[in-house]
């Protein structure tokens, strides 16, 4: 698994990887970071809820809204 020197990034990847796969999880986080205008190395506690909201859309495709909410809640609890 590719890790960056950012605790929040690594923890988000750890939560998402089992569902999206490691490569896609990284891609998804990077895409969301780009959307909110930050780099993955600079994710802060304050960015988590915005990133989680973006992740929800990605996860709904594969696990439905209830599953997506459950996973994103785990992300927001980081």
């Amino acid at each position: 698994m590719n890790t960056l020197n950012n605790m929040y990034y690594n923890q988000i990847i750890e939560i998402l990887s089992p569902f999206l796969g490691n490569i896609m999880a990284q891609g998804a986080v990077m895409a969301q970071c780009k959307k909110i205008g930050i780099s993955p190395e600079k994710i802060t506690k304050g960015d988590i809820s915005k990133l989680a909201e973006g992740m929800k859309k990605a996860l709904v495709v594969f696990v439905g809204t209830d599953g997506a909410l459950s996973i994103t809640e785990r992300i927001t609890r980081i």
């Binding site: 990887s17 089992p18 569902f19 999206l20 796969g21 490691n22 490569i23 896609m24 594969f62 696990v63």
Partner: peptide
């Protein structure tokens, strides 16, 4: 295929 390995991929 882009998702790599995982249960969702298997589904």
């Amino acid at each position: 295929y882009q998702l790599g390995k995982g249960d969702i991929t298997l589904t």
